[in-house]
Design a protein around this nucleic acid. Sequence first.
DNA 1: TCACGGCGAGACACGTTTGTCTCACCTAAG
DNA 2: CTTAGGTGAGACAAACGTGTCTCGCCGTGA
Lengths: 182, 182
Amino acid sequence: MSITDSRPGDGVRERILRAAASALRSHERAGMAEIATAAGVGRATLYRHFASREDLLVELGRFSAAECVRALEAARLDAVPVPEAVARANRAVLSVGRAYWVVSVHAPDLWPEERAVGDRLDLLARRGQEDGVLRRDIPADHLGALHGSLIVGALTYEPLIALGVEEAADTITKLYLSGAAA
Amino acid sequence: MSITDSRPGDGVRERILRAAASALRSHERAGMAEIATAAGVGRATLYRHFASREDLLVELGRFSAAECVRALEAARLDAVPVPEAVARANRAVLSVGRAYWVVSVHAPDLWPEERAVGDRLDLLARRGQEDGVLRRDIPADHLGALHGSLIVGALTYEPLIALGVEEAADTITKLYLSGAAA
DNA sequence: TCACGGCGAGACACGTTTGTCTCACCTAAG
DNA sequence: CTTAGGTGAGACAAACGTGTCTCGCCGTGA
């Protein structure tokens, strides 16, 4: 995004991946030309960094998941009680998630790296159950998966994410923990 | 699915649409050849029923949403109190939803028909708030949207939907209404 | 028996996409 | 100034997807 971003090498690859995420979000049929344009880059440059379209997609999966995991690591979930950890996880994923959500939705099997994120939500649910703060009548991995789908929902539903990360995260934290009942 | 399904005319179109939903679920780039194969049908037959790929997609949107709306109508949501209506809605959508969820995810703007389903969830949330059984600190349409994303989550997460419609619907009903807290 | 309608298979032309390659450009380092 | 590395632009062949058309097949109803 910044002006110096077009310096040789390292910055370009990342910019391409971010642009690809954005382009694929609008439609998965986006081709290399479309991605190149979105990245403000020549089409040939795509092939200098990625062997093929398929390869670019795989790398995008790795990149997005890694970014998401990094955010979750930084949130230090295991340093706080589960309810607070849920809130932190939601903020963390929503803040980096616009790039990420593509991964979780479009090709669930193509990107095993995505599991790294889901696993962390599962783990959180499991700890919650062990600590007695989360219900035990739903398996932890189901809780984790549905927690994930709330996050995706927040990212997908424009009017919600438009309120900003804090608001949106707060909404799904409340809903996930306490439910919709009055 | 049944053997007599290959009788002339009416059955084929529906089978194509179901196959298209299934094919597009794995990847939106699925072409006409792929859809035809999934439907167990010649590629030419696709063009006998739909003018173009674009047209097929539009019809798929209409078809899926209509099927979903039909199920919701049949559930008579407004004849019962909101918590029971939520349970019914979940069962209704999950039972027809495997075809439907593609619509909601892949091209939110391409298929305005999808709104017909979302609107019903919004309406349900609004009634819940008016009746005092649903929380008012989250706008009704946000509740509706997140309710929808829980449904999509249930459809997407294999281990959950594999338990069957009743189980899966029950899980998201509990989670949506009461939350994950113990 | 025959015609008919819907079908599968496959050939076809056309446009688009992919992946490769070359060339000229610009910038930073020497 | 000169070189080297990364780039944008564009030419290019091959592969792929689309939409049309024709053929031969098979079941239904006359």
